[in-house]
Simulated scan of single mutants.
Amino acid sequence: MSGRAPCYGAPMPSIKQFQVTFDCAEPERVARFWCEVLGYVVSPPKGFATWDEFDRTRPPEDQGSWFACNDPSGVGPRLFFQRVPEGKVVKNRVHLDVRVGTGLVGAERLAVLEAECTRLVALGAVRVELLADDYDACIVMQDIEGNEFCLD
């Protein structure tokens, strides 16, 4: 027995909110990139008006170590960015799918994905590859620190 609780059986409380955390070298820079990608806004830490105000309460070596942004509509998850000492060395085990072509197929879907890809490359993203067949397509990309995501 692994000691892990099963995903079935006795009812558990339902989780309604979660945040996605990015390990990165430059939290504010990566957060601002994702704000542009998703239309999110910077969200200051609880109890502070700004991240600068928060940083002034931290030791110098911790300043700039965290940043966050939220979906202004309150629908999407909060994104949290934390500085880590190591760089990214392997493929992500989890990635975001940025849903820009929902409901579209064929050439129409591909045109929307390509237009969004062009916009994101101008922000510093990197296009990795197009995965497509006659019906479906997605574009694998990397953010400004190499984290993979898909335009879907």
Score class of each variant (00 low, 15 high):
residue 102 T to K: 05
residue 125 A to T: 04
residue 112 V to G: 02
residue 112 V to C: 02
residue 100 V to D: 05
residue 139 I to E: 05
residue 106 G to K: 02
residue 146 G to I: 00
residue 133 D to S: 07
residue 121 V to W: 00
residue 101 G to R: 07
residue 111 A to I: 00
residue 130 L to G: 10
residue 105 V to M: 12
residue 106 G to D: 00
residue 112 V to W: 01
residue 96 L to T: 15
residue 100 V to F: 05
residue 108 E to R: 07
residue 97 D to P: 04
residue 143 D to K: 11
residue 103 G to K: 11
residue 111 A to E: 05
residue 99 R to N: 13
residue 139 I to C: 02
residue 119 R to Y: 06
residue 113 L to C: 04
residue 108 E to M: 03
residue 119 R to Q: 07
residue 137 A to N: 02
residue 136 D to Q: 11
residue 126 V to K: 12
residue 101 G to C: 06
residue 104 L to F: 10
residue 114 E to M: 14
residue 123 L to Y: 09
residue 122 A to Y: 14
residue 105 V to S: 12
residue 136 D to R: 15
residue 143 D to Q: 12
residue 98 V to T: 15
residue 99 R to C: 09
residue 137 A to M: 01
residue 130 L to K: 13
residue 103 G to E: 13
residue 107 A to M: 00
residue 137 A to W: 00
residue 109 R to Y: 04
residue 138 C to W: 13
residue 107 A to Q: 04
residue 113 L to P: 03
residue 126 V to A: 08
residue 125 A to G: 09
residue 123 L to K: 11
residue 96 L to N: 08
residue 145 E to T: 01
residue 104 L to V: 13
residue 111 A to L: 02
residue 123 L to Q: 07
residue 104 L to T: 14
residue 98 V to R: 07
residue 130 L to W: 14
residue 98 V to K: 09
residue 116 E to G: 02
residue 135 Y to N: 12
residue 126 V to Q: 13
residue 140 V to C: 15
residue 115 A to D: 03
residue 145 E to Q: 02
residue 125 A to K: 06
residue 133 D to A: 07
residue 130 L to E: 14
residue 100 V to Q: 08
residue 134 D to P: 06
residue 114 E to I: 12
residue 131 L to V: 10
residue 139 I to H: 04
residue 103 G to S: 15
residue 135 Y to Q: 13
residue 143 D to F: 08
residue 98 V to G: 03
residue 140 V to N: 15
